[in-house]
Design a protein around this nucleic acid. Structure first.
Lengths: 216, 216, 216, 216
DNA sequence: CATGAATGAGCGTTCATTCAT
DNA sequence: GATGAATGAACGCTCATTCAT
C-alpha cells in the first residue's frame, strides 16, 4: 500500500482537502480570537492587530480571510451563533412529557447552554453593538430570540390545553419567562464580580417562580 | 479703589451665582449632548467634536468642563443616574398598603421610569461598556441595581410576614422579579423595530406572572 | 483714537481677516508643497507626510485644508492653472499688429510662460495622471488647451484675411502650431539632462518654421 | 553516464527548445499584461496581482520571471520599445527619392506606427515615470528619440544639399518637426474623448506645414 | 472664558515580496 | 516550475488633546 503522494499528489483530493482543512482551521482560530478581543473591548476599540496576535498570525493574514473589521465581526457573530441554535432545537426534541416538565427542562437547558461564556458574550455584543449592526441584530433576533420564543410558546400552549397552565392573555409572556435567563447571562458578564450569581440556585428560583406563576 | 474688577459687577453675589448658573447650564448641556452621542454610537466611536456640536459649543470648550473623553463619559453616566435614584426612593415612600399592592406599584413605577429613553440608554451603555469602566459598573450596581433589589426584598419580606407571599429559599429572587423590566428596557432599544414591545400589556403580564408566582 | 482692541476685538473685521489671511497663506503653502511632491514622484507615489513636511506642518494639518489626497491634487492643479490663464489672456490684448507679428509674439509669450517650471509640471502631471482624473483633464483642456487653440485660430484667421497666410484646409492646425512648445515643455522635464533644449534658439527655429509654413 | 537528466528528454535539443519557447511565451504574456496594467493606472498604482491575473498566472509566478515590480516595468518598456526601433530603421531603407518625398514618407510612417496604441502608451509612461526611472528615460531617448532625430536630420541634410530645403540655423529643428506627431500621440491618450484627433487629416496638415516651412 | 487651528499617535487596510508545498 | 498563503512595512486618514489668540 504505497499511497503514492509526494508533492504533486493533489490529484486524489486528499492534499486539497488538507489545504482546505487548514484554511478552515485558521479561519476558526481567527473567529475565536475575534470573539475574545471583541468581548474584551467592544467592536470600535478592538484592534485588528490584537485579533491577529491572539490568533497567532500576522496582521495582513486576517484580511486574507475577512474583508474588513466589520465583516470579521459579523462572521464571528454568525459562526458563534450557529451551534446555539442547533442545540436548542436538539434539546427540544425530547417531548413526551407534561408541559410543566418540558418547561422545566427547557429552562434548565437554557441555563446549561449559558454556561458557555461565548454565548453570553455574543449576546452582550448584540446588545452593545446591535444599533450599529442592524442586520446582525435582526439575524440574532430571527435565529435565536424569535426561535426561542416559539419553543416557549408551544410548551405553554400544550400546558394550557392539558390544563396544567392557566391561560394568560397579555402580551410578551414568552419574553417574560425567558427574561430571568437573559438577565443572568448579562449579569454574569458585567456585575458578577460585584454580586455573584450562583447559576444553579438562581435557576431553581426562576423555574419555581415561573411554574408557580403559570399554574392554573 | 473699590474692588476694581472687570466688566460685570460680581460684587453683590448675584452675578456670581448667575455665572455659576451659566456654567452649570453649559455643563448640563454637554452632559445631555454626551448622552445623545454615546447612545448613538457607543463610547469608542463617539467623537468629542460631535458632542461639542450637539451642545452648541466649540471643540475646545468641552475640555474646560471635562478632562477627557473618559471623564465626560463617567460624569454623564453619574449625572444621568442620579434622578433615577431619587425617584425610586420617592416612589417607595408611599407605603401603607399590602405587599401585593406595593409590589404591583413598584413594578409599575419601574416601567414608568423606563419610559424615559435616557435611563434605558444609560443601562445599555453600562452593559456595553461596563467591562471597560469597572467603577462605573460598580457605581451603577451600587446606586441602582443593589438599591432596587433592596426595595424588592423588603416588600417580599413584608409579604412573607403578612402571609401574602410564600417563602422562597433560592438565590436571586429579586433579580428574577426585576428581570422582566430589564429585558423590556434593552429590548426596546435593540429589537423593538423587529418585534415591538407594548409596554402596558407587557407590564401587566409581568405583574400577573410574578404575583402569582409568589402567592402563598 | 483708542481702537479698543485686545483679545476680543474680532469686531472690526481686521483680526478676522488676519486669521483668514493666515489660513489662506497656509493653504497656499500646502498647494506649493503638493506641487513639489507630486511633481517629484507622481500622484500615487506621493506621501501626504512628505507634503506636510515640505509645507512645514504636521500630518494631520493637511486634512484641515483638503479632504483627501485626491482633493489636494485637484485643488493644486486648479490653483496652479489659474494664473497661466490670466496671463495668456493678458498677453493677447496687445493686438494692433500684423498677424505675422502677433503669432510671433504669441509664441514668444508661450515659451516665456513656459520658463516657469510649475506650469510645465502641471502639464506633465495632466499627461501622466489625466486618465485617472478625467475631470482634471477636462478642466485643463477647457481652460488652457482649448483656449490656447482659440487664440491661435483667431490670429490665423486674421492672417488669412489680410493675405499674410495661406488658407490651410486640414484639421488640427492650431495644435500643430503649438506642438513645438508643448514638446519643449515636456522635453525639459524628462530629457533635458540627456540632450538640453536651449529655449531661445529652439523658439526661433519654431517661429521660423511655422511662419514659413503658413506664408501665403 | 549520458546526461543523466530528470523527467523529460531534454537530450536531443528539441524538448529543450520547447521548454525555452514556453518560458519565452510566458514571459511575453507577462510583459503584455504588464503593459496593459501599467498603462491603465501607472507604475505606482499597478498591482502585481493584476499583472498576474491579466497574464493568467499566479501571483508568485511573476517573480520567477522578474525580480521586482521595477524590473518588470523596465523589462516591459524595453521589450515594447524594440520593434518600434526595427520598423523605423526598416521604413528608412527606402531611400532613392527626393528629400521632400522622403520626409513625407517618414512622417507618414511615424503616424502609422503611432496607430499602435502600445507605442503611445510606452511614450506616455516614459513621460509620466521618466523622472523616477532615469535610465529608462535615457534608454528611450537613445533608442527612439535620438535615433528618430538622426533620421530626420539626415533627410534634411539631403534636402539642403539638393536645394529642396533652405538651411535653417537654429537649434532643435528635428524635434520641432517631430513635435506634431508626439503631441498627437499624447493627445489621443489624454484628450481624445474631449476633442478627437483625426489622424489622417492631422497628418496631412502637419506634413504640409513642415514641408512649406522648410522649402527653400 | 471660548475658540478652533494644530498636533501626532494610532489604526484599518493594502500590497510587494517570500517560501513551504 | 508553479502556486497562493503568509508576512509586515507602509500609507491614508482620524480624532483626542493642547494651546495661542
Amino acid at each position: 500500500m504505497n499511497q503514492g503522494a509526494g508533492k504533486g499528489a493533489n490529484v486524489s483530493g486528499l492534499p486539497v482537502s488538507r489545504r482546505l482543512q487548514q484554511k478552515e482551521a485558521k479561519r476558526a482560530a481567527l473567529v475565536d480570537a475575534a470573539l475574545k478581543v471583541f468581548s474584551r473591548v467592544g467592536f470600535a476599540a478592538a484592534k485588528m492587530d490584537d485579533v491577529a496576535e491572539e490568533a497567532g498570525v500576522s496582521k495582513g493574514t486576517v484580511y486574507l480571510y475577512f474583508d474588513s473589521k466589520e465583516r470579521l465581526f459579523e462572521a464571528m457573530v454568525r459562526d458563534k451563533m450557529a451551534p446555539a441554535l442547533d442545540e436548542a432545537v436538539e434539546s427540544f426534541t425530547v417531548s413526551d412529557s407534561s408541559a410543566t416538565e418540558r418547561l422545566r427542562q427547557h429552562l434548565r437547558s437554557l441555563y446549561a447552554r449559558m454556561l458557555d461564556g461565548d454565548r453570553r458574550q455574543i449576546m452582550r455584543l448584540i446588545m452593545a453593538e446591535g444599533p450599529n449592526f442592524p442586520h446582525l441584530a435582526a439575524f440574532y433576533h430571527q435565529r435565536i430570540l424569535s426561535h426561542g420564543q416559539g419553543l416557549i410558546r408551544s410548551i405553554i400552549s400544550q400546558g394550557v390545553a392539558s390544563g396544567e397552565f392557566r391561560k394568560m392573555e397579555g402580551h410578551g409572556l414568552a419574553r417574560n419567562i425567558a427574561a430571568g435567563a437573559i438577565v443572568a447571562a448579562i449579569w454574569k458578564l458585567v456585575f458578577d464580580h460585584l454580586q455573584p450569581i450562583e447559576l444553579d440556585s438562581y435557576l431553581e428560583t426562576h423555574v419555581d417562580l415561573v411554574l408557580n406563576g403559570l399554574r392554573a
